[in-house]
Write a protein that binds this DNA or RNA. Structure first.
Length: 335
DNA sequence: CGCCAGGTAAGGA
DNA sequence: TCCTTACATGGC
């Protein structure tokens, strides 16, 4: 049911974890086998400059239909598959400089699990990114400078799991976000795993293998269109059979990864760039056709109409290298 | 009822 | 290569 360890494609960078390691290792981790239920296990991750947890949480709380995590009391809880097993974790930032990663439910972490989870969280919140250049560029830009003030410290929240990222993009094609969230919720409730914990139900997005026996009709009954249902089944098949993976896409140049994705029927340039942005962490991803982006620019530039393709290209030429962050910050003005 | 929504594919100039 | 159009489905 859960993906094999490593299948999910976390990238381990041999020399990127050094700042975290010494801190994590002398965290007061309790780890004997007879651990009582109320023992908590946690470790800490150092936070980069220009990071505001609250700004990220505000973004993440935008939909009441979000079903893959719960925000409460200045923290966030979610299920994560670590070492091939289900874990319920909680993230908080009790201090400016450190993020606390706590295990609420599941087997205590092995050192390898902890590394994997640390990678997951760093990836999720894009903690490795140096935002200085973007902020420098934005501070001199008439459209972006108000945004980096309003949303200071916001990180491009990622979707580390390729299948989830693809499905989220697919269900979000040409529908309003409210409906997209409902579709994701139905997919998750029907096909995902659930865990009850302290009166709440936590859910994880289904693994692609789960769709092996699922029919078009079954997906359509969740109010997915036939095209979307078809595309999701095809993507599930490709990932489950190993023909498509995050690691494989990461090994390619962005354009090649995009091409590999758009070769799949039902995945066009918007979806491919969306995945580049949220999953592959490609900062040059540019959703030029995105309606939300058009509306955001119309709003911040006080236009009477939506921007033309030419205007978009001119604008984004100023933000080269940071297209994804510019887009992510622009989207924020809409919600 | 009508327009819109974080599109895509197919067909034609 | 660049435009048009059909499609599909709910939100408001």
């Amino acid at each position: 049911m859960w993906q094999q360890p490593g299948m999910n494609g976390f990238t381990f960078d041999a020399d990127s974890g050094d700042t975290e390691v010494d801190i994590a290792e002398d965290a007061d981790t309790v780890g004997d086998d007879t651990m009582p239920d109320n023992v908590t296990i946690h470790f800490w991750l150092p936070l980069p400059a220009i990071f505001d947890f609250q700004a990220c949480l505000t973004y993440m709380s935008r939909s009441p239909f979000e079903c893959l995590y719960k925000l409460e009391a200045d923290g966030i809880n979610r299920l994560v598959p670590i070492g091939g097993e289900i874990h319920l974790i909680r993230l908080t930032c009790p201090t400016e400089r450190m993020m606390r990663v706590e295990l609420l439910y599941g087997e205590p972490f092995s050192p390898e699990d902890q590394d994997e989870l640390a990678c997951y969280v760093r990836d999720w919140f894009d903690l490795e990114r140096n935002l200085e250049p973007f902020y420098q560029l934005a501070s001199a830009d008439p459209l972006l400078s108000p945004l980096i003030k309003s949303f200071y410290g916001l990180r491009l929240v990622g979707i580390p799991d390729l299948f989830e990222a693809l499905c989220w993009a697919i269900v979000g094609q040409q529908v309003n976000l409210t409906f997209a969230y409902k579709l994701k919720q139905r997919l998750t409730e029907v096909y995902g795993d659930a865990l009850e914990w302290e009166g709440n139900t936590y859910r994880s997005f289904p693994a692609p293998e789960r769709f092996q026996e699922v029919t078009l009709e079954q997906l359509c009954s969740l109010q997915l269109t036939k095209n979307k249902a078809q595309t999701i089944l095809e993507v599930a098949r490709l990932i489950a059979s190993g023909q498509l993976s995050r690691d494989q896409l990461l090994a390619l140049k962005p354009e090649a990864a995009e091409h590999k994705l758009t070769a799949i029927r039902g995945i066009g340039p918007w979806t491919a760039h969306y995945v580049r942005m949220r999953c592959l962490r490609d900062q040059t991803a540019f959703l030029i056709g995105d309606v939300g982006l058009h509306n955001a620019i119309k709003h911040v530039a006080a236009l009477e109409r939506k921007p033309t393709v030419g205007e978009l290209q001119t604008l984004f030429a100023n933000w080269r290298g940071w297209e994804a962050y510019a887009t992510f910050y622009l989207w924020r003005v809409l919600y």
